[in-house]
Nucleic acid binder design. Structure first.
Lengths: 217, 217, 217, 217
DNA sequence: CATGAATGAGGATTCATTCAT
DNA sequence: TATGAATGAATCCTCATTCAT
């Protein structure tokens, strides 16, 4: 009986939390769409509110400032991206295949299914404010650490000796993926045969990486 | 004698042109500094005017809109960058050495001496307006064409058969250079030993490129 | 009971509408005063806002542009003027008396009670922009149509044969009323005995009109 | 010989005066055209200077302020208008014919040949500034005095007893002429048969005036 | 919690006027 | 006298944020 009462008291709180989180998510989704279509600067709070079917005032119940929203969107996008890459990389296989697998996941899963997040990370979060730029810095640092870690892990013990080495390679790979995504997925300049583009890009990485891994041995 | 008179008439005009161009250059320099320090959105016309030691009204004698200034700065930066790359690439040498040479020029000449232009192209010109984004698109297209052309030129006759191929490689190389520059020159994250970073990055490119060029044969 | 509930739901909306309209009217009133005192060009949004005891931003909640406000003020003034004339003309009486009655209403009701609207129509709405001039054109066309219609109505069947005829007379009458109003009510040049001025002006119109109406027979 | 020398000294001054006046006239002509086409507010000093083929600086050698130019243009236009009316009125003929003659001169000479002045007086000089409005007031006062004087002159001795009387009639006539000109010559609304419009308008005036003059007897 | 009207600081742009050459 | 580059005050309008209901 007590349990029942306890539940009766606790549940609303849980529900409330969930409601609040749920609504926050809805706002973020709406905002993400807006940002991907127009541009962070061009999208006003009123636009986001309209897209999320809430009022302007309500927006500020969930986010302190416009920047906060962007910050959280960036966090979420970064988490999503890292997870996509990690999941693909952690599948069984030869070292180089695992990198290729991660690259392929980036193109097929992230660039396609999370196109709006891609745009946010690569385009819309740039030049907004120094706070946002700081967040971008952290995100890229994380990504680079992830990739650096992956290289080191694959190279085995010897990797630890030349950490810098792996980091530059990681930065390079990230840059390649970025610009290929920007060029072919965001701008949609050039070839429409994205499958071939992927293959080429991943082959290029494989060549570079192959050298690095062999040098390690 | 007639020539003398002609000169006497022409000179003031020439002087005038030069004065006007000079002044325009000074404003652009000042603006470039402002944009690199703060952010295009955060820098007002008044800030630029103050930095250039002119009045707000004078700014509008040289540029119709704030956007015009940015457009011209982008053009100039793109020209500078392409020239730097072309000059280095056109020196004598083995194909792969010529690419390495261009890459090195990018880091040593452009990222160092034209740091502000680098920031403008890679960071500040993003998310400003659709017109600016269009210009960015064109600039990157030019850069990619340049690199694609260089690859094809080096690969010889066989290159023409697989044009797409070279383009994706070019996009990849550009992306690598970009992110390495952003990471180590703009953010100055990670190692301070830029010489080693350069070497690693260029080695990575060389490996990838080597494969591509050999495949061509 | 249901009706009660329905009311409870509807009322706020009605109240809201009224509030918004009320506020808009207050701004228009304040602006009309400003415009009549200074001049449309010399009155800034800040002046209007101050006069209406609102902030600049609030102004733009009710009017998209300064010109919109002017357009709406003109519409309202025109409506007021036409109504004043129509009401007076539609009273019982001999044809010529009805015209005189309308003229008298113009002077006594419109020029006195709506002095600011008079100034807006005759002075302040001129030379602002081509859009405003277009609106002025339409307003004067309406007034002339009204008067032309009144003449035709009074002349009976024969009037229809010579429509142009009546129009020129209508334009003339309107011009007379205008300049008399401008001279004696706006500039307040000349006699202060406005009663006599009215009598004279209306007698002049009556003479001209008498001729026209008789010609019709 | 002395006379010769004197001449030699004086002439340049005279020439200079004439040059200066001539140029001032050229500027005024150019400005008048600009004002009639666009609107006083929309025409900048730079536009006038370009139209007059001089520099901005030179403009200020001839006029202290933009307003001065407008003031002088108004003076000239008023002089031209009064002269046109006076000349026509002073021809031989029956009293009523002389008024008709003046009215006809207004339409045919002034509205046609001096269309730009007409626009300046009736449209462009309104709502510019209080100083300009003051000038307009004076001009209209002069015109009304002219017409009042004409009526009195024609009515003979008895006219003097009821001065106000004639003034209101004069104001009315002026108003008619104005609005007919605005409607048919400036806006070019309604009939294109300006001859008939003239006839109608002048007939209307004649009827009103006839009454007034007879009353005087 | 939800609303949306109100706020006002801030930014881009214009243009009459001045002044050094 | 003639020039036209330089000035900067003034104005319109936007939009992130607040707050009374």
């Amino acid at each position: 009986m007590q349990t029942e009462q306890l539940k009766a008291v606790q549940r609303p709180v849980v529900k409330f939390r969930r409601m609040k989180d749920r609504r926050r998510s809805l706002i973020m989704e709406a905002a993400l769409k807006c940002f991907a279509q127009n541009s962070v600067a061009a999208v006003g709070i009123a636009d986001i509110a309209k897209a999320a079917k809430i009022s302007v005032g309500t927006f500020y119940l969930y986010f302190r400032k416009k920047e906060d929203l962007l910050l959280q969107l960036l966090d979420e996008s970064a988490r999503e991206l890292r997870q996509t890459l990690a999941e693909a990389f952690n599948l069984e296989g030869q070292p180089l295949d695992r990198f290729e697998c991660a690259g392929r996941a980036f193109f097929r899963k992230f660039c396609n299914d999370q196109r709006e997040m891609l745009i946010l990370i690569l385009r819309e979060s740039i030049g907004v404010s120094s706070e946002i730029e700081e967040k971008r810095k952290k995100i890229f640092q994380l990504l680079i650490n992830d990739i650096t870690g992956a290289i080191d892990q694959v190279r085995g013990a010897k990797g630890r000796r030349e950490k810098r080495h792996a980091e530059v390679v990681a930065v390079s790979i990230l840059g390649m993926l970025e610009r290929v995504a920007y060029h072919y997925y965001i701008w949609q300049t050039g070839s429409k045969d994205l499958r071939k583009v992927e293959d080429e890009a991943l082959a290029f990485i494989r060549d570079g990486l192959g050298s690095v891994l062999n040098r390690g041995n």
